[in-house]
C-alpha cells in the first residue's frame, strides 16, 4: 500500500464469516492433504523396505 490507494469499505459480519469459513475449509483441506502425503510416503517406504527390488526408483 502506498497510501494513495482508496481505502476498501469495511467488511460486513456476513462477509467476514464467509471469509473465515473459506479459510477454515482451506486449512482443513491442507491438513488432509499433508496427512495423506505422510501416510503415502510411510506406506511406500514400508513396501520398498520389505521388497527393495520393486521398481528402480
Amino acid at each position: 500500500m502506498t497510501g494513495t490507494e482508496p481505502a476498501l469499505p469495511p467488511l460486513s459480519l456476513a462477509e467476514s464469516a464467509a471469509i473465515a469459513r473459506r479459510r477454515r475449509g482451506r486449512n482443513i483441506a491442507m491438513l488432509v492433504v499433508l496427512a495423506g502425503i505422510a501416510v503415502l510416503f510411510y506406506a511406500i517406504a514400508m513396501v520398498k523396505l520389505a521388497k527393495p527390488d520393486l521398481g528402480a526408483g
Binding site: M1, L11, A18, I19, R23
Partner: peptide, 20 residues
Amino acid sequence: MSDLTTSVVAVDSSAGDWFA
C-alpha cells in the same frame, strides 16, 4: 492490517477452487 484485508478480499479462494 489493511494489506491483509485487501489480499483476502481480492483472492478469497475456497478449497474447492484449488481442486477446480
